[in-house]
Computed example of a mutant assay.
Amino acid sequence: MATEHGDERDLGRSLKLLWGDRARPARGRPPGLSVDRIVAAAVEVADGIALTEGLEALSMRRVATHLGVGTMSLYRYVPGKSELLDLMLDYVVTPSAAHECGGEVEAGGWREVMAADARGHWRLCMDHPWYPFVDQSRPLLGPNTLRGLDSLMGRMRAFGPDDRTLMMMIGIQYDFVHALARSHISELRAEARTGLSSEEFWEQQSPTLIRVLSSGAFPTMADLDEKTFDFSYEQLFEFGMARLHDGFALLLDAPSH
């Protein structure tokens, strides 16, 4: 479930901050403090509490404490948490290796281009486990985000899809990665919160499951191969991405292309 990014944010201020209007306040500026330093500190705080307390625990006060300054000092640079989240989202989106190897990736075909982008987003979510929990239903396109999208769109155009189709492909893949990442991170958060590993969680259910499956009421489930549930989230990610791309192939690899 996405959170923490409501309509109360000041869109104009966020856009100005994203695109370079980061003028320092004339008075009361703590030495060394800047928008970039505040954003970097906020990312460090969010990374540190994402699995234990969640993004809801991130606050301007907490970021200020991390920086060793008064909370009001931050408001001279950033209006509030919602605008800070806009800056954080763009800050962590750096071009992946795929964006920088251009022709080498393109030589492998569109699957390699899309797979590199999907894996880059997966790593982003794993490195910053708060990221997929921010409501991005109305995203603001900052410099890093727009640069990455421009690069991906530019490389994928060579394979034939029109811009509208391509944008829908990217959107579907983006939603798939973030939904699976949220599930994975939610499980990690549950483990951190309860102290009970996933294996221990299922072991506690084992006696009950063995009893009910032996009753004959669930014959298909009772007959499942013992390796049915033996896969990791990373394997699930790779499997789902490949099947998603199989669907794209019906369009991109059709004779007309």
Rank of each mutant, 00 (worst) to 15 (best):
S137T: 15
S137F: 00
M167T: 14
S59G: 10
L141K: 06
R155T: 07
Y75W: 01
D175T: 15
A242W: 08
I185W: 00
L18G: 06
M1E: 13
D21M: 09
Q173R: 12
T52L: 04
L17C: 03
P79L: 02
V39H: 03
E200T: 09
M221C: 01
L209C: 03
V35I: 07
M221W: 13
M241T: 08
D230Y: 04
P25D: 10
R157V: 14
T94S: 07
S215V: 07
P30V: 10
L15K: 11
D127T: 11
A23R: 15
Y131Q: 07
R24I: 01
P255H: 05
E234G: 09
R62W: 00
A40L: 00
V92Q: 05
L252T: 11
L33V: 01
P255A: 13
D246I: 04
P30W: 02
D90I: 01
V35A: 01
A64V: 08
L251W: 09
M168N: 12
E112L: 14
E226G: 12
L252P: 08
L17A: 10
V78Q: 07
E53Y: 00
P132T: 03
D246L: 09
T145W: 09
L15V: 15
R27C: 02
H257Y: 11
T208E: 06
W122Q: 13
G108N: 09
T145Q: 13
